[in-house]
Amino acid sequence: MRFHSRKWVKPEDLNANETLFGGKVLAWIDEEAALYSIIQLENKKVVTKYMSEINFMSTAVKGDIIEIGIEVVKFGKTSLTLNCEVRNKMTHETIVTVDNIIMVNLGADGKPVAHNKTKIEYVVDRLASKE
């Protein structure tokens, strides 16, 4: 699993128990999945279709630094299936896991369109191939 983003847990991210609000971390996961998919599929028009069971395993408190990891599970014809782990950066304790996040590639008309991708591509490799 590659961890791409870090977030600093601030007072506005907390619930009434003074721990990280689940809705906030889910928004961060959705954004990270979208960014990852946009980069992989080279298309800004990507949407979340599905998130499987979300497993809250521990929590974070104000001042913690968390990191969000994304991994590709499968390339579909018009979709990309990911899994996600959110963990505490300092302790590596898992906070949340999501086994399946399905992101769909859209065309200019807003309908699913084939992306013709079959493997993970890294931006550095794309840039090297254009030289």
Rank of each mutant, 00 (worst) to 15 (best):
T48P: 03
H4E: 13
L80W: 01
Y50E: 13
L80K: 01
Y122Q: 11
N43I: 08
V9T: 06
L106S: 07
W28E: 02
H115M: 04
M103K: 09
E18I: 06
T118H: 13
Y50R: 12
G63D: 08
E93T: 10
M103C: 11
T48R: 09
Y36C: 09
N43L: 08
K117L: 08
M57W: 03
R2A: 13
D99A: 15
I29S: 04
D99F: 11
L20P: 04
G110L: 10
V113Q: 15
N116M: 11
S79P: 05
M57H: 02
S58D: 06
K49E: 13
I38E: 11
T59D: 03
S58M: 01
I95T: 05
G110S: 10
H92L: 13
S79A: 06
L127S: 07
I65M: 01
A16V: 13
G23M: 10
T19V: 15
K24D: 00
H115L: 04
E53Q: 14
V113P: 01
S52G: 15
I120E: 15
L26I: 14
C84Q: 09
F75V: 06
G76Q: 04
V47Q: 04
T118C: 07
G76V: 02
E85T: 15
G107P: 02
I66N: 01
K7H: 15
M103S: 09
W28P: 01
E18V: 07
P11C: 05
L106A: 10
I101S: 03
V98H: 04
A128G: 01
I68S: 02
K10L: 14
F3N: 04
I120A: 06
S37F: 05
E131D: 04
G23R: 12
F21A: 13
V47G: 02
N17T: 11
C84I: 15
R87T: 02
K119N: 10
D30A: 14
Q40A: 06
I101R: 02
I70Y: 01
I39F: 08
R126C: 07
G69M: 02
N83P: 08
K119S: 14
Q40R: 03
L82K: 04
T48K: 11
I66W: 02
F56T: 03
E18C: 10
T59Y: 00
S37I: 03
K74A: 13
T59A: 05
K77F: 08
L80P: 04
K117E: 13
L26S: 08
K130S: 09
W28Y: 12
A108M: 12
N17R: 12
T81H: 10
N43G: 11
K62Y: 05
V9N: 02
G69K: 01
